[in-house]
Amino acid sequence: MGKPLAIVTAVSLGLLLAATFISSARAAEAPKPEPTGQELAFDNRKGNCLACHAMPGEPKTVTNTNIAPPLIGMAARFPDRRKLYGQIWDATRANPDTAMPPFGKNGILTDTEINKVVDYVYGL
């Protein structure tokens, strides 16, 4: 009997916290410019590419990860831009066991955001 109540309490608390967060985020929203592809790729709430991919050509990275293939020579590796877009949209299609989040399918990034990331990654 205590359990459903506890879960509901936890969830409603979460909702409350989320609401608080959202209203304070909204206040700060207005003057902020749209993030660039690089900012999206670095942001750990957004693309967070560098959590798993090294970027040997990007001096700004501060990680030493080795989970996923390094992002380098991308234009040569993905001659078809749509393939790179598809990989970011839902990597589980090509590899069901992948650890890469399906950024498009799960709504982590919008279409516009994915396109910016693709443009950025393409230059690496």
Binding site: L50, T63, N64, T65, I67, D97, A99, N106, G107
Partner: peptide, 20 residues
């Protein structure tokens, strides 16, 4: 939303480096 299982990291990528 990020679509990880516990095992995605701690079985499939054990000993590898996430960020740092």
């Amino acid at each position: 939303q990020l679509n990880f299982s516990c095992a995605s990291c701690h079985v499939d990528h054990v000993g590898e480096i996430l960020r740092t």
